[in-house]
């Protein structure tokens, strides 16, 4: 198989790689905020339960979570494994990344000085207005470097979908590598991820720059 055919074949999986990437961000970024707020809840029970789930999601391999979400329903309830693996893959990724984002958000929220809340309260902001207008914009700026880190990791983590044979780029590459007994597909995959992350880096850098209008 020529290098060109290899690249073309693997490119066919690129759409699915992108699907995992974008859908995961779409769901995990807001879900992480909800988890962070639950984690910081004044209700001890809510806070502890959330904390427990975060430790599980961060303390066990993503690969295991992928297997659990994809095949768990079959082993537990005898339910059929869904034909479209994108759904369980995105669910597993979203929940896992939400746990990481939640801790980043929490760190950001807790780093905002109390004085900001106090000033807003005295000035008549409601709690919701305080969060949306005063706290959140400052949090976003502060956490951008950490979020960029996670997003870069996510690009590479999409390759983990091969464990449930979801036909994304890396899975296809691995299949070619097996059938052709060649290491070339892995190099191609590496170049793909590198270029993908080059773009991610540029985009995130641009967002960070736009948030630099204040200190």
């Amino acid at each position: 198989m020529s290098l060109m055919t290899m690249i073309l074949k693997m490119s066919e999986g690129l759409g699915k790689t992108c699907a995992i990437f974008f859908l995961t961000l779409l769901f995990s970024l807001p879900l992480g905020m909800i988890v962070a707020l639950l984690r910081m809840s004044k209700n001890r029970v809510v806070s502890w339960i959330t904390r427990f789930f975060i430790t599980i999601l961060r303390g066990t391999p993503l690969m295991l979570q992928l297997l659990a979400v994809t095949y768990g329903p079959y082993y537990l309830f005898g339910a059929g494994v869904s034909r479209n693996k994108l759904i369980p893959v995105v669910i597993a990724f979203s929940i896992n990344y939400a746990a990481y984002f939640a801790e980043i958000y929490r760190g950001g929220i807790e780093s905002i000085p109390v004085g900001q809340y106090e000033a807003a309260e005295v000035l008549g902001y409601t709690r919701f207005q305080t969060f949306m207008r005063i706290i959140l914009p400052q949090v976003v700026k502060r956490i951008m470097p950490s979020v960029t880190n996670e997003v870069v990791t996510l690009v590479k983590d999409t390759s983990m979908a091969f464990t449930v044979s979801y036909q994304e780029m890396f899975t296809i590459g691995k299949q070619i590598a097996n059938s052709q007994t060649s290491f070339m597909p892995f190099i191609v995959a590496g170049v793909f991820y590198y270029l993908f992350n080059l773009i991610v880096d540029r985009l995130m850098g641009r967002i960070e720059k736009r948030l630099n209008y204040y200190k």
Binding site: P113, G115, Q116, E118, A119, A120, V122, G124, I134, P137, Q138, K141, Y214, K215
Partner: peptide, 15 residues
């Protein structure tokens, strides 16, 4: 709405 407060550390909104 009847009172205003000026803080030691200003507490302006930086953004």
């Amino acid at each position: 709405t009847l009172f205003g407060m000026v803080f030691q550390s200003f507490n302006l909104f930086p953004h």
